[in-house]
Design a protein around this nucleic acid. Structure first.
Lengths: 224, 224
DNA sequence: TATTTATAATAGTTATACTATCATTTTAAA
DNA sequence: TTTAAAATGATAGTATAACTATTATAAATA
């Protein structure tokens, strides 16, 4: 019933598409909650199975290991942010306004999406902030990149870089600025919460307006 | 004999100061090499012991676990960069010139330091680029921050933020810019090597001049 | 209803992350 | 120089993580 969004993710990330079954969607749902509670290091499939009243072996039929599950969630997030940007910039022509919307999407990707009830976007965002970079800081990065596992991230950054180049076609670092705005957004929310002396901004419970203001300031001053 | 530099690090990071014994210095030396080879996930104390012809139990007498060993190395790196900046800005008054030197120190902290023969600074830099952020992205970050485990990072950023504020006292984000320049430096070297579509710059074997140029461009345009 | 497919229940294997104990070597103190 | 203390090595052991395999049962489909 109703509109169902199916997020297109690289098939190498999973053994069996978790979006296609109740158990699969449950794995996604509970892994977000448990990762948010325990962090990636303490998280494992045994605990996840207990949490969702299933078994370790069942989860292993969907994901090879917890690293690929994390990468699946991170890819999901990248796609979701790209989707948010797409729908929110639909009728907007001014690239400066588009970049503002992009930055807002980076920062407040926490707004819950009613069409995917098994993903708590706000919780997923916290997981990305705390664990996201672990998905691509591994010894297997080149091998996995060869399999296209980071395509969603690259597509997102390419789109943002396009908008940046629209604003200022002579700007030499559109890709670097795009990825930096994304990384900076997550990083400074993390810093504000845990290592506040590494930043100047403050955040409240899901209130990231100062981060947004800072990113807009950085972007505007670099692109003028 | 000769000049010996002893780097001051938080005592909670280790059980026994590794700088004070041959075995301890060997642990530092070989852990840098092995982390660089295997990455943090595949690295463990058993392999490290084999590599240096010692035993697991002996290493556990110096470090509680591999996470704290990584944090020790990362802290060492933060101190080493701060030291580099200090000696290279000794007689410099112009804060703009100071920031250039800071950026150069972030990027090329790879230059080997002759006074600490057990630390290969170039290899350590690669470890920081690939694994550094894992030292402070854990569930224990608040607890460890309370124990002062990240003091070296905060001091480094505070020093850089000071220079930034000298250049432009009205700039609102000195700490954020400082930490961003540091993180961006490591991140974009990593991207250039492994996920080149996330950046615009290219790097060669320990040749990071494009990163340096980009960071200077970002800093200059934000602070003018 | 028969048959395939998905999941659960259970058990087992190998590796990691430690801890404990005792022997031996090195260092430092008497 | 002997003796005690401290550091390291050798060895073994425990708990948990990260899987794999097997069989039973339930659900879906033909």
């Amino acid at each position: 019933m109703g509109i169902e969004i199916k997020i297109a993710l690289n098939e190498g990330l999973y053994l069996k598409d978790p979006q296609d079954s109740v158990l699969g969607r449950n794995i996604i749902k509970h892994s977000i909650l448990l990762l948010s509670d325990l962090g990636f290091e303490a998280f494992n499939f045994k605990k996840l199975a207990q949490e969702m009243n299933s078994t370790e072996a069942s989860i292993y039929r969907y994901f090879e290991n917890k690293h690929l599950l994390l990468l699946y969630l991170v890819s999901w997030y990248w796609e979701w942010v790209a989707y948010l940007i797409r729908i929110n910039t639909l009728n907007i022509d001014d690239p400066k306004r588009k970049l503002e919307i992009i930055i807002n999407s980076f920062v407040s990707a926490s707004v819950d999406n009613p069409t995917t009830d098994y993903v708590d976007e706000s919780k997923l965002h916290s997981v990305i902030i705390a664990e996201g970079m672990k998905a691509y800081h591994t010894k297997e990065v080149d091998e996995e990149n060869g399999k296209g596992f980071f395509k969603n991230y690259k597509q997102l950054i390419t789109m943002v870089a396009g908008v940046i180049s629209e604003i200022n076609p002579t700007f030499e670092y559109p890709y670097a600025l795009a990825s930096n705005l994304f990384e900076m957004s997550n990083n400074h929310i993390y810093f504000a919460k845990h290592l506040p002396r590494l930043t100047d901004i403050k955040v409240g419970e899901n209130k990231y307006s100062e981060v947004e203001k800072m990113l807009n300031y950085f972007a505007t001053n670099l692109l003028r």
